[in-house]
Write a protein that binds this DNA or RNA. Structure first.
Lengths: 198, 198
DNA sequence: GTGCCCATATGACCTATGTCATAAATAATT
DNA sequence: AATTATTTATGACATAGGTCATATGGGCAC
């Protein structure tokens, strides 16, 4: 997260997106740096049959879609608002200028990318070598520390739909539903009012 | 890749590793920055049954294992030499000092991490929503541009064993062997002398 | 308060990929 | 040259997770 005042010095513009609105599309060139002030955004892919894979979900004060700003490559995924959201956007040129003129920001960017690589490494190993129960628990535990989930008297509330959980772990909704039930029976999590607590 | 002379100014040490030798282990703290001068290194995970997943393979002039140097986290995977290799190593402290004193290096690091995130995004979507044929072709095509594969009269030689291909894509050797044969029949690649060309 | 849209749920059946066994070809080591 | 290890290969069979159909309940717009 880059300080808002600093972004504004580099001509940041506030933009509002309605739920389900597309922010950018796969295979397009990166033109802006995006930082969320409110709401939530997912980055995703669809395969030929329309099956979705969610690369990640981003919340207030997080940025997303920076890598292609530094590479000669297009976006590897789409970005879509999962709720009504407000973003701060600055152009690629201004962003690169900002970084060059503020070395401490580049360290911050490194940390953000490092964090995200860590998440991807953990989930990649998970998705390719573990069974559904293990995958879900790993996602929940990682999300609790990585996303901004809230703890109440029942534990941490996993604020994701079954469909989203499936799309994040490469499983189908039905499998997620069945696996969550099994995990509940095993005492690994609670289902209260259809919501998952861990 | 950071200039060797610069690394040497920050007390880089050359270290040799034999094939199969471990460079660092999962869940350990990061103590050094590593850059390959010759040879190749893989980063991998094992699940409870000993099944391997390869996060990536790195070759001469590439670095690996940097993210935890910037985070309050341990390594998400192991690093192991896949052939006899020589590495340049500098301590975490010297590395952070180097970056602070050389802003252009931090941009370079950002580019490396961005590149790697791009690979992970592509492969994650691939592994979770595509069938084995698609996964292999994607890995081959990405590897050709991302790794240092060589083109000859038969096309690009995929310098990976069937086992490594499986471990990179979350498939078993037998499946890789069968899928490669199918792809050959479909004319998507060539098998010459057991070697895959694309 | 009715109608519609999602999210959650469950059963029956299917299939891509995994598992296991076994073998031959090649490479590495002595 | 002989021995051992690794890689590629193939067949028979098993199964986790996917697919499809169908149902129920909650939220919310009108």
């Amino acid at each position: 997260m880059i300080e808002i005042e600093l972004l504004e010095k580099y001509d940041a513009v506030r933009k509002r997106y309605k739920k389900s609105e597309i922010i950018f599309e796969i295979d397009h060139l990166a033109t802006h740096y995006y930082q969320i002030t409110s709401g939530a955004v997912k980055m995703n892919n669809y395969n030929d049959e329309g099956r979705e894979f969610i690369q990640g979900i981003f919340y207030a004060n997080q940025s997303f879609g920076e890598p292609p700003l530094f590479l000669d490559r297009t976006y590897p995924a789409n970005a879509e608002a999962v709720e009504d959201s407000e973003l701060l956007c600055i152009s690629k040129n201004n962003f690169l200028k900002l970084i060059n003129e503020n070395p401490s920001v580049s360290i911050k960017i490194i940390e953000v990318l490092a964090q995200r690589l860590h998440y991807k490494s953990v989930m990649a190993a998970e998705i390719s070598t573990h069974d559904s129960e293990h995958r879900l628990l790993q996602l929940f535990d990682y999300s609790i520390s990585y996303f901004n989930f809230i703890k109440d008297e029942n534990g941490y509330a996993i604020d994701l739909t079954r469909q989203q959980i499936g799309d994040l772990t490469g499983l189908r909704v039905e499998t997620v539903i069945r696996t969550i039930k099994t995990l509940e029976k095993k005492g690994e999590l609670k289902i209260i009012n259809r919501k998952v607590y861990r």
